[in-house]
């Protein structure tokens, strides 16, 4: 029964419409009254706030969201990604010419053998 009185008072504090007779009965319950006082304290604690100091009075207001600017930024980011991908797909030799022109390290080294597969050229 105590729990019911407390719940009724909680609902009343939250703005619900309650049965006056049942409210009266709840208020007659000492433990329910204590709970009501606790509700009041809790609300006071939540609602109370100190005023801002003078130094913060001129805080710039929150930036207004501008959809056009956001779209432009997204477009620019997409362009950057596209350019980066394009460059990544281009032949490497376009950018690192010296390295591209140099031979790779050979996996094997062989030799034309004179008298075997190398001989005088006839002209």
């Amino acid at each position: 029964m105590i729990e019911t009185h407390i719940e009724l008072l909680s609902s009343f504090c939250d703005g619900a419409v309650v049965d006056p007779d049942r409210l009266a009965a709840a208020l007659a319950d000492p433990r329910a009254r204590d709970a009501l006082v606790d509700f009041a304290r809790l609300r006071a604690a939540v609602a109370s706030s100190h005023p801002l100091p003078d130094s913060l009075e001129r805080l710039r207001p929150a930036a207004v969201r501008r959809p056009q600017l956001r779209a432009a930024l997204a477009g620019a980011a997409a362009m950057l990604v596209l350019v980066a991908l394009t460059f990544a797909m281009l032949p490497r030799g376009w950018f690192i010419r010296d390295e591209a022109d140099g031979p790779p390290p050979p996996a094997r080294v062989i030799r034309y053998e004179p008298g075997v597969d190398w001989g005088p050229e006839h002209r």
Binding site: P103, P104, P105, P106, A107, R108, V109, I110, R111, Y112, E113, P114, W118
Partner: peptide, 9 residues
């Protein structure tokens, strides 16, 4: 892509 070096006498 295997590189082979052939020496020319």
């Amino acid at each position: 892509d295997e590189a082979i070096e052939i020496e020319l006498p």
